[in-house]
């Protein structure tokens, strides 16, 4: 039976597949065979993790989207998916190393600090908006996390050609972020009576959204500000971390309507 106590087996298999894929991806002058092998290994890891998520859904009798530990699962899944898509589309050989390291860190956190305290879905989360809101948010977080990795590499290597990939990934990520935020507003109206309540979590979502919009507008109108674009992208990601879990560590969340996340 798939459950948290055998999660480590899935972690080992996923880490092995993704680790091997990352090493093969680093090989210079890859043949088609190597290129395909990287894709198949990465996809195998994704299938293994998806199997765990499906199994956990059956076990919990609800989608695993409630605790931070469960959300991390989706983050890892989407991050590895975004990693392989970026690898196929732009042929960045190093992207899989970063997505794998981040995935292993997040999965290890789940093993070392599992948040399994609540298996039941509370009434506030029983809504048709719940799954699209969370899934789309986490997918956008993964994309924006990927753009952060690319920005770091670009800034470190002083190479501005990566900004094109950043633009595409950020545009997709921010579109999804906006959709998730608007879905959240519709849900909030149904649950609390207001589309926006200036809640701590909402304020940081607004700050993150504005910062990414600033990046998009900077790239649209001041195309040659390369270093500034990379630095802004790094700060955007920091704001995203604040929105995602940073606010949980501050007293303002005690009064927050999002206190259960």
């Amino acid at each position: 039976m798939i459950a948290w106590n055998n999660f480590y087996v899935f972690v080992i298999v996923c880490s092995f597949c993704w680790g091997l894929a990352s090493i093969f991806a680093l090989v210079k002058n890859q043949s088609t065979l190597f290129f395909r092998l990287v894709i198949y290994l990465q996809l195998l890891g994704i299938i293994v993790l998806s199997t765990f998520i499906i199994g956990l859904t059956y076990r919990l009798l609800r989608p695993p989207l409630q605790t931070m530990g469960e959300i991390r699962l989706w983050y890892v899944l989407f991050l590895s998916l975004v990693g392989i898509i970026t690898y196929i589309r732009w042929h960045y050989r190093w992207i899989l190393i970063f997505s794998t390291i981040m995935s292993i860190v997040f999965m290890s956190l789940n093993i070392l600090k599992p948040e399994l305290h609540n298996q039941n879905l509370m009434p506030a989360l029983q809504s048709v908006w719940f799954i699209p809101h969370v899934i789309i948010y986490i997918f956008s977080y993964s994309l924006l996390g990927c753009s952060f990795i690319i920005a770091l590499v670009g800034l470190f290597k002083r190479n501005f050609k990566y900004l094109n990939a950043c633009d595409n990934i950020v545009n997709t990520g921010v579109s999804l972020f906006t959709i998730a935020m608007l879905i959240g507003a519709l849900w909030a109206k149904d649950a609390w009576g207001h589309y926006w309540t200036w809640d701590a979590k909402e304020i940081w979502a607004g700050i993150t959204w504005l910062m990414y919009l600033l990046y998009i507008h900077l790239r649209l109108h001041r195309y040659n500000r390369h270093t500034l674009s990379y630095i802004l992208l790094i700060f955007c990601f920091l704001a995203l971390q604040m929105c995602w879990y940073g606010v949980n560590f501050f007293p303002s969340l005690r009064e927050s309507l999002h206190a259960y996340v």
């Binding site: 633009d167 595409n168 950020v170 545009n171 997709t172 579109s175 999804l176 906006t178 959709i179 608007l182 507003a185 519709l186 109206k189 589309y195 998009i216 790239r219 649209l220 109108h221 195309y223």
Partner: peptide, 25 residues
């Protein structure tokens, strides 16, 4: 009216998602 604004924005964002990033310079 707010709902209408959200729907308009949603349509635009979904369109933007499918169109991708287009630099104007």
């Amino acid at each position: 009216i707010v709902l209408l604004g959200i729907v308009i924005m949603l349509l635009g964002t979904i369109g933007n998602f499918f169109r991708g990033f287009k630099n104007q310079t």
